[in-house]
Design a protein around this nucleic acid. Structure first.
Lengths: 251, 251
DNA sequence: TAATTGTAAAGTGTCGACACTTTAACATTG
DNA sequence: CAATGTTAAAGTGTCGACACTTTACAATTA
């Protein structure tokens, strides 16, 4: 389904990069953890060369960080980083939705409807998140812009990594989030079905911004009380104002 | 000035990646050209390892392409690619401008004003383009979102590469483009000075879209006659319509 | 001539080795 | 005890080598 602009090399380096990516996203490798090449090479049963090459791939994707000394660590996440990631998602996905709206077909509609149905039946928060992201991926892919899609993947991985480190996501309020998020998805779908690019972009922006505000710990949805802010298109009379977002890391 | 989220390793691989990037952007390495590791290693007087690592960096930035066989080529550019690059620029830079508007200072204003002055005095098309991109970089940087900035750099390099391969840019209509583009820059600056995020995003989108339509060969600016289309926020009554862009590769 | 096959050249994927740098543990000294 | 110097361990940067694969070319054949 997902397209791959530049066919990936089928070598050890790329394979290890994929494994490492999954490991970082799933939390096997924790933020700030040192990634020594000899240790990883031993772990995967290869020499250091493929490991080094994999590290470069992960660094470009923003999942690990090179220090001035040459050492590599899993990238750390603070509140500020989540805001950055969400802002980047909004930038890319609003354009993605805009593009997808122009080329939208009935088959696409059916795909999304099936996805939404599955989302409603999702048994757990993590299962729901997987379906949620898969739907966003589908729309980004349908935008037809390979470069936009590639950039989006970088952000998507960082977002998934952030999700696993937001404690409050775990199970607790899954039903509320699910219900709220599905409502947003329906609005996005409506704009796409009606082939209204601007509406799709706008609704997508709001959906992403709103859904992230559900994660923190509050149960009643978006609020305006916290410090971090996410810029988003929001009409006010003449002077637009950035809306607040709750702190995703509050325990 | 430009920030660097993850301090780059100061090793041969990164150095070579930079040189190769400059070479690809400037046209020393032409689109479709094969990049054999032994040849490059000899050229730079190093072994293959750093070259391999540099290739991975460039592939992630979208400047080169890996084939299924493992061989590497400078990425080729068609009309479709320019559309993708510009759409990605619009997505990223509209958000960048939105963010920059919130944090805009008088010092930033002075910087941009100096830049615009220099742009007006630019002696050549290439010189103007350099100043133009530097101004866009400044604004992206002022957005304060490191991830957005990093993603933007990828697109920026691809855009610069595309520019060197658009024949019509060379000198001929430099004055017209310059005049037109500076007008757009002033509108962007106005929105930033007034700290209107939505206005800044909107004006930036339109500026990017319009300026690329100048490159083709026409002298009278944006037209609606060509095949390729760039999606852009543009208000129509209820139903937004993608606007056309001229073919940048028409000789 | 055109197609096919065999062979050499070129290129990639991976590894182990070595030099240099940073880190960390330990011993020394005030 | 704290501060400092010392040394061994760990880690990175780079290289050359070798096996395997793909490509290019030439010879062979229909």
């Amino acid at each position: 389904m997902a397209r791959c602009p530049s066919e990936p090399r089928r070598n050890l380096a790329h394979e290890i990069a994929s494994k490492m990516r999954r490991g970082i996203i799933s939390g096997t490798f924790k933020p700030g953890e040192a990634l020594a090449e000899p240790a990883l090479a031993g772990r995967f049963g290869v020499s250091r060369a493929p490991v080094r090459e994999a590290m470069i791939e992960l660094e470009r994707a923003g999942l690990v960080q090179f220090e001035i000394t040459g050492r590599t660590r899993v990238r750390m996440l603070e509140e500020k980083d989540v805001v950055e990631i969400v802002e980047a998602r909004i930038a890319l996905e609003s354009m993605g939705a805009r593009l997808a709206a122009v080329r939208w077909t009935d088959e696409d509609t059916r795909w999304i409807e099936r996805s939404i149905t599955a989302q409603q039946k999702a048994a757990s928060g993590v299962k729901f998140s997987a379906l949620d992201i898969a739907m966003h991926e589908y729309i980004m892919n349908r935008g037809g812009n390979d470069r936009l899609f590639t950039l989006w993947q970088f952000v998507r991985w960082q977002f998934e990594m952030a999700l696993t480190h937001i404690h409050s996501l775990q199970e607790t309020q899954a039903p509320d989030l699910r219900c709220f998020s599905v409502t947003g998805h329906r609005k996005v779908l409506k704009a796409l079905v009606e082939r209204q690019p601007e509406m799709a972009a706008k609704v997508m922006s709001r959906h992403i911004k709103d859904s992230i505000e559900w994660y923190p710990g509050k149960r009643r949805g978006p609020s305006r009380q916290s410090r971090a802010r996410i810029a988003l298109p929001c009409k006010t009379r003449g002077h637009a104002v950035p809306v607040n977002v709750l702190n995703p890391f509050s325990q």
